[in-house]
């Protein structure tokens, strides 16, 4: 596991599309790929479901609640905040 991200840290969801490369199991919704969000809370650490799904050895990863601005994702978005559980493996430092 990497160092814990503090609440308020600005992150970017990796703009990665493993589903275009072959069979995979993904817990990061496609609508968030490349989106900027803010870490709201550390939720704990869990074995990586992307590996567990294939009965492969799974690293334990930090899981965060990350908050996004819906209007930055869809121009016609109606909500005020969108909060999603994301594993650290999908998060990178925001430029």
């Amino acid at each position: 596991m990497s160092a814990l991200l503090a609440p308020g840290t600005v992150v970017r969801v990796r703009d990665d599309w493993p589903e275009t490369r072959g069979p995979c199991h993904i817990r990061t919704p496609h609508y968030l790929r490349g989106a900027r969000g803010v870490v709201e809370k550390h939720l704990g650490a869990f074995a990586n479901p992307e590996e567990l799904a294939f009965a492969r050895p799974a690293k334990v990863l930090n899981l965060y609640h990350v908050r996004f601005v819906p209007a930055a994702i869809w121009p016609d978005a109606g909500g005020d905040a969108l909060v999603v559980e994301l594993f650290e493996s999908w998060l990178e430092a925001a430029a």
Binding site: L63, D80, A81, L82, V83, E85
Partner: peptide, 12 residues
């Protein structure tokens, strides 16, 4: 009233 949508994607 602000609307906060929680997308339940992982272990919780």
């Amino acid at each position: 009233v602000k609307l906060r949508v929680v997308d339940s994607t992982a272990d919780y």
